[in-house]
């Protein structure tokens, strides 16, 4: 009789310990989360494999694109956020395929996949060591996700424990332009954001 009670108690204890371990351990996403390097606007933020600086964030209700004389209008149920900056690989050739906008409340928005690759965007480009290159990131989000947002850039979404750069954008979200146009250029810088300011 005592032996049965003892086994039952031991089982219950084991279950309790396992439950406790399951619920006090950090989340899987946290254990495998990228290593973040943080900074602000207009500063070069260095990760171990690449560096990034952002110098412009613009918000608009409508996004137009002009490529090779063809123009297209993209409407949204929210707003468009167009971010520009400069990125550089440090030691080896790499791509920066993952870009996210993290709203103040922690909701994620990814680089838009509505605008075709004829507009040169960060995720399609290759970065060579020692050759800094302008980057263009376009997001679509509800108006209330703009204020206090952070841009998060990484080589890919799939590599755990890789570098990630987080830049706080300090935008108020109140300055919304009716429309902006991204024009692809034949020479000089690959694109221009209009109206210029």
């Amino acid at each position: 009789m005592m032996r049965v009670v003892r086994s039952v108690l031991a089982l219950m204890f084991a279950a309790f310990v396992l439950y406790g371990m399951q619920h006090t351990r950090p989340l899987y996403s946290r254990i495998t989360s990228p290593i973040a390097y943080s900074g602000g606007m207009n500063k070069r933020v260095e990760a171990s494999a690449f560096a990034l600086s952002l110098d412009s964030v613009r918000v608009a209700r409508v996004l137009n694109t002009e490529t090779f004389g063809k123009s297209k209008t993209y409407t949204s149920s929210g707003v468009w956020v167009v971010v520009e900056g400069e990125a550089e690989a440090k030691f080896e050739t790499l791509g920066l395929t993952s870009g996210e906008w993290l709203s103040g409340s922690g909701v994620r928005y990814v680089l838009t996949d509505r605008v075709p690759a004829t507009i040169e965007m960060m995720s399609g480009d290759v970065y060579q060591p020692g050759l800094p290159r302008r980057v263009l990131l376009m997001f679509e989000m509800p108006e209330d996700a703009v204020a206090g947002g952070t841009v998060v850039v990484a080589r890919t979404k799939l590599l755990p424990l890789d570098d990630e750069i987080r830049i706080a954008t300090n935008v108020s979200g109140k300055d919304i332009e009716p429309a902006i146009t991204i024009r692809r250029n034949d020479e000089g810088p690959p694109w221009t954001v209009l109206p210029q300011r």
């Binding site: 440090k90 030691f91 080896e92 290759v126 060579q128 060591p129 020692g130």
Partner: peptide
């Protein structure tokens, strides 16, 4: 300095 470049496409 150990920097490495891949061929451009």
């Amino acid at each position: 300095s150990g920097r490495a470049w891949q061929p451009t496409l």
